[in-house]
Amino acid sequence: MSEVEIDVEAVNISKMQISDEVVIQISNMNKWFGEFHVLRDINLQVNRGERIVVCGPSGSGKSTLIRCINRLEEHQKGQIIVDGTELTSDLKNIDKVRREVGMVFQHFNLFPHLTILENCTLAPIWVRKTPKKEAEEVAMHFLEKVKIPEQALKYPGQLSGGQQQRVAIARSLCMKPRIMLFDEPTSALDPEMIKEVLDTMIQLAEEGMTMICVTHEMGFAQAVAHRVIFMDAGQIVEQNVPKEFFNNPQNERTKLFLSQILGH
């Protein structure tokens, strides 16, 4: 496990900026893949401005959980309400939620046939109907923010993994989302590139973005998260503020997981 050192003290995040407004409400949610019960009775409430890190062993359902939030996966029982919109099979609602929720994937999933700039402007132009010129200005703004404006006219295949993931973040931000989901954003990266992506995410956190992040970067969790959720076998096993979660885990499985991931 490559652990990137993050200076917890240096990260300038006021942990008090969570509002009372609930943006994601998941109640008694269950999901099956065929016969396999992958998510069991999930209850989760996320407030605006809150940053949550989800961790757990592979196959525990953490990716599936956040993929349910923008309906990349369909849940079979229970309720998911995102920003006041309930996710059902109604396509209009799904589109509405997806417009407000950005997602960053483990394997970046940039569009290889489009330039970096086109990757960033595609959704604003087609989904938000932003004029091309304005979309390009917004895209350049966010590309500068992730520190790669000079790559705008290249294709994804010409960039390093870390750069591609930063473009993926910028691409999501161009839709001006109110919530960002990260699905193991650094797991496919070489060690020396993990930090540049985490720095970008920390910067985003500093601006008060609501974030749910599946990751094994525990340094990042300590520095940024308001809350850490541990999942195992499709259930939320434990959740706590990072300090308590890491220093004083309660559940046996959490202890085992943390000892495996932190101890070398």
Binding site: R98, G102, F105, F111, A123, V127, S172
Partner: peptide, 29 residues
């Protein structure tokens, strides 16, 4: 790759937009 469909979905493109802008240009190529 499956990820191309998912990225298009996650960005809020509808089926036809995703086909026109993302899927077909690559599949035809």
């Amino acid at each position: 790759p499956r990820g191309q469909y998912e990225a298009a979905d996650a960005l809020g493109l509808n089926y036809w937009q995703a086909q026109r802008q993302i899927i077909m240009p690559q599949a035809l190529k």
